[in-house]
């Protein structure tokens, strides 16, 4: 069985920071079409700060995710601070005492993150927001590990679910956030939060996959 070493979380987090910082302009452009054009600014600011504060440290995955959560909540404000903050805080709590994560642990981590996020917002799938990426991605992961405990396979399911979820926002009419004011005019544009969430889940899957090792189980 393949597992992820959860004692070394900094490297994974740095990859998440990287993907957001690299896509700063792209995320703002996506937000600009139907929102106020600052999603990349908001996200990059929080992730960059997190990157700075974890640099050079040796952190468990839980500690690293916890730092990300606290940094986002404490530094970026807006909607994304509390939403992504809750998501990553839920994930951090989920893996608190774990040294390694198997495919099931990883799935629980994602589910706990989602649950934490849902406590702060009553947004739901179909509202045209990051949940449209997150929920189907996690569901797709869950279904994959129900069938087999193959970790790389489940991560691929996560990526697929995330990408399909992100693309589903193209035709949706926004029900929440600034874009909701556009009504029908919000159709035909991706949702910025759904895009950033897809970037994050995809990179998390990539990064995890590269680090999988055979556990002596």
């Amino acid at each position: 069985m393949q597992v992820l070493d959860a004692t070394q979380g900094r490297d994974i987090l740095e990859e998440l920071v990287e993907v957001i910082v690299d896509n700063r302009q792209y995320l703002s452009d996506v937000d600009g079409a139907i929102g106020d054009g600052d999603h990349g600014i908001n996200m990059a600011k929080g992730f960059r700060l997190c990157g700075e504060s974890i640099a050079g440290q040796s952190l468990s995955l839980s500690k690293a995710l916890g730092t990300l959560a606290t940094t986002l909540m404490g530094s970026i404000g807006g909607s994304m601070g509390p939403l992504y903050g809750s998501l990553f805080m839920g994930m951090a709590k989920s893996v608190k005492d774990k040294n390694v994560l198997d495919a099931k642990d990883f799935g629980e981590m994602l589910a706990d993150g989602q649950q934490s996020l849902e406590q702060i917002s009553d947004a739901k799938v179909g509202d045209k927001c990051l949940l449209d990426t997150l929920v189907p991605a996690i569901e797709s992961y869950r279904q994959a590990i129900e069938v087999s405990d193959d970790f790389p396979n489940a991560l691929q399911a996560l990526r697929n679910g995330a990408q399909q979820g992100r693309d589903s926002t193209l035709d949706l009419e926004a029900k929440i956030g600034r874009a909701a004011r556009l009504g029908e005019r919000s159709c035909g544009h991706l949702d910025a939060g759904a895009v950033s969430c897809c970037l994050l889940l995809t990179r998390l899957a990539d990064s995890t996959e590269r680090r999988l090792e055979k556990a002596a189980a």
Partner: peptide
């Protein structure tokens, strides 16, 4: 005080 056009943090 939030960023331009963006809510302040919960901490704030």
């Amino acid at each position: 005080i939030g960023e331009i056009f963006s809510s302040p943090t919960a901490d704030a």
